[in-house]
Design a protein around this nucleic acid. Structure first.
Lengths: 127, 127
DNA sequence: CTGAATCCACCACGATACTG
DNA sequence: CAGTATCGTGGTGGATTCAG
């Protein structure tokens, strides 16, 4: 098991307000960030990314890319073309995040059916 | 590597609006849900959980617990005490989610310092 | 003790229009 | 092409109060 869970006594399992994970999770644990990192297995242009993320608006994608760039996950490079192009690519840091994200993604796919069932059962009970 | 990333051609890397992972990630990939699951390594009462999640409000915690229950991650059991108590515990489904969540948590702790540096550098550049 | 209910402020997002 | 700017709005969260 991972460090949060292993070999800790009862009283220690808690999340203090200053736990270093909290501001980070706030910034990167959203669905668009996850999808952007997944799609950047190779450098891609802005609209290329946008096309692959069904439903994202231009505004939100821009914000997401900025936040990922600020946190060192991706790099933004302006191409000397006409009209201008912008290429985004993963940094080593961003690359290292793809594995835990991938695990989570795999989990959702694997358990999507069961979750759906549970949800239906719950809604039936409380109706 | 995990299934999203491996052995797929260029054109296939995309997230359709009906990708099964998306509604699930919307429901479970928030920081409070992650912390609740982490804290529930054993059954716990409402206020017990609340105390361990520094900064969560009663309202938000209630909503989080309901959503986790609805999705089959946790079970809610009313204790025949006076005054009434409510105990929350993980289901096998919720238990299985702790591993991917733990990985992500570990990643944030491990890279917190580097992220902080990148952020400072970025802010300095764009000021 | 464990919520449910209410009120309110904020901002996150969608839509749209404009620009280098 | 890759944004920025602006506006309008729904939803989310905080604070507080009430209840079983």
């Amino acid at each position: 098991m991972s460090s949060v869970y292993r070999a800790i006594t009862d009283a220690e399992v808690a999340f203090a307000a200053d736990c270093p994970s909290r501001p980070i999770l706030d910034q990167i644990a959203d669905k668009w960030s996850m999808m952007v990192l997944a799609v950047l297995e190779q450098p891609r242009r802005f609209n290329e990314i946008k096309r692959r993320l069904d439903g994202v608006t231009q505004r939100v994608l821009t914000q997401t890319l900025r936040r990922l760039e600020r946190n060192g996950m991706i790099e933004r490079r302006v191409l000397p073309t006409s009209p201008v192009g912008v290429e985004y690519s993963l940094t080593p840091l961003g690359e290292s995040l793809r594995e835990p994200f991938g695990r989570l993604y795999d989990w959702t796919v694997e358990h999507a059916g069961e979750i759906q069932e549970r949800r239906l059962a719950y809604d039936k009970r409380s109706s």
